[in-house]
């Protein structure tokens, strides 16, 4: 069975239907890129997978945890799937290490010592072991995003959702974050990422989903989606991208 099962998902904001029946299954260890124009519903879809948005119809399951709008189900779902945001969203009043420790201690009731050991391991993993005591505003954007990744990893999720995680970064900082993601992919982490980094999607992803007007318009391995787009919408979208 797939790790993430998205079935006939519909979502509307007021009168606008942003997701018009999405079906998508993500296997364990798979890396899936979601591409598409802004407004195509790709971020909304990602945010539905861990319950930051509620769906109007259909169902979403992650490793047996279903998206249901109550605290208990949401918590269960969010323990299976972590999320990384465009704006990093580190807690500014806590050091990098404390950022990584907090949810372990509060949500999982991990003792402080264990949580700290885990935080040091995870920060080491994203190359920031020496920044344990630094506060978010003392870190560059790329470093902050890597702390955010360490924070999500420390909860030991089965999958990670990445919502345009390099879009707020200066160009020279993009690669350090993508390198970390690439390593995660190599380690077998299941990833669903909304991205504008076409080259990265091509190199690292197993499948690429092209969303258009609230639907999965095309889906397939990157060679196919990028090399041989079948629909005019995808051709037009790819034509508008600078680097493919």
């Amino acid at each position: 069975m797939s790790l993430i099962a998205i079935t006939e998902v519909k979502k509307r904001f007021g009168d606008v239907e942003v997701l018009k029946g999405i079906n998508l299954d993500v296997e364990r260890g798979e890396v899936v890129a979601i591409i598409g124009k802004s407004g195509s519903g790709k971020s909304t879809l990602l945010r539905c997978v861990n319950g930051l948005e509620m769906i109007d119809d259909g169902s979403i399951m992650v490793a047996g945890a279903q998206l249901i709008n109550d605290d208990l189900h949401l918590k269960a779902l969010r323990l299976k799937v972590g999320m990384i945001f465009q704006q990093f969203n580190l807690f500014p009043h806590l050091s990098a290490g404390r950022n990584v420790m907090l949810s372990q201690m509060v949500v999982k009731k991990t003792p402080a010592g264990e949580a700290e050991a885990m935080a040091r391991r995870m920060l080491e993993r994203v190359g920031l072991g020496h920044k344990f005591d630094a506060y978010p505003d003392q870190l560059s954007g790329g470093q902050q995003q890597r702390v955010a990744i360490a924070r999500a990893l420390s909860m030991q999720p089965m999958a990670l959702l990445c919502d345009e995680i390099t879009s707020a970064l200066d160009p020279e900082l993009v690669n350090e974050v993508l390198a970390v993601v690439k390593e995660l992919a190599a380690d077998g982490m299941t990833l669903m990422m909304v991205t504008h980094e076409m080259r990265f999607a091509r190199e690292v992803c197993d499948r690429v989903v092209f969303m258009h007007q609230g639907r999965v318009h095309e889906i397939g391995p990157p060679e196919e989606v990028f090399g041989n787009p079948r629909t005019p919408e995808l051709r037009q979208f790819l034509g508008a991208q600078l680097v493919v």
Binding site: F85, F91, V107, R151
Partner: peptide
């Protein structure tokens, strides 16, 4: 910022925990 709510929620924190550890200290 709204992102603080979203980040803490996506880490599995409940409303009271979000308030206590993330929102109120700020």
């Amino acid at each position: 910022a709204r992102g603080q709510w979203e980040a803490s929620a996506s880490l599995g924190m409940g409303y009271v925990q979000q308030m206590r550890y993330v929102i109120l200290p700020q």
